[in-house]
Amino acid sequence: MSSTAAVDVRAWLVWGGSAFLIALMARNPLVLLELGMVVVIVRGACVPPDRLSGVGWLLRLAPIMLAIGVLFNLLTVRAGDQVLASLPSDWPVLGGNLTWNALAFGVVSALALFVLILIGTTLGALIRWTELARVLPQRVAPLAVAGSVAWVFLPELTRSFTDIRESMQVRGVAVRGPRTMVPLIVPLLAQGLERAMITAEALEVRGFGGAPVARTGRRAWVADVVLVGGMVLLAAGVYDLARGSTRAWPLMIGMGTIAVALGALRRPATSTPRTQYRVAHWDRRDTAVAVSAAAVAGVFVAQWTTGRVALGFDPYPTLAWPTVDFTMMLALPLLAVPAAIAAFASLPAR
């Protein structure tokens, strides 16, 4: 069971993408607060108990982020109509007015950062990387395998190092300084080679690195053309966004993303056959999570493209309460659909 809600990893990716998008776009404190509440609800209801690490470190991090954001903003932005205090103007760098406007902006920036970290840690706890590797397209499967082998390298090396050092200490050999490291490095190297052989054999048994099978016909290369075209569009869109000269970048990035997704999902012209012991099934729960998350993202993107001021919060030069937008506030709870599924769904767990 991947989580208490047993939602497919692809649906979680859509959920996480939507939550990240909203947190990056919105600066309205009411929206950020509501988004944070939704993420906390999903975290509490859906993260399995073995992965539900404490949020204490996150709560300890919050005041630090708040202090940094507020102090930096207070001391660098002197604009605003609400003066909190004044430092002598002959103080270098620090002198001048400290305003409530700057404090409000610092608090909102810290809140946005905190919500982003909350979303990231929640998504990390909800997704199992083995499941993620399983649903990756055929094109990136070799990369995923290489990545997972590399990912476990460091923990395995650390474990071997600790084991060998303890064995040496039991036999009365103390490891003190570089000179005594020589008897430690040799068995470490031997164990590393042995582990590499075992991993290679395991990959060989599973058919990794076998002779690729060539596909024939027109559709075999169409996917390649679509993929390359999509990547070109995506790069052009990102360049246009960075340059900021035209408004064509949303279209280019959107079309490029769709083309890359379509091209990546199609099997390449030559590929190694891939066997899966556990095939991921997409059911009604996954559809509900993905559709609701995409709908929320759609509402916010529509608000952003129409230039609605309620998405942002600008306390300069006049400090005012944030604008209330009921469309956004009523759409956001849809992101809590995974929590409702975990609480009420009668479908059997995967």
């Binding site: 009411l30 509501e34 509440m37 939704v38 609800i41 209801a45 709870p333 809590a336 929590a339 609480a343």
Partner: peptide
């Protein structure tokens, strides 16, 4: 809306954990 979300969320988390 925020209060209702908080209340509903607390209920959902409690029920999901019980299950």
């Amino acid at each position: 809306i925020l209060a209702a979300l908080g209340g509903a969320g607390w209920m959902l988390v409690r029920r999901a954990r019980q299950r």
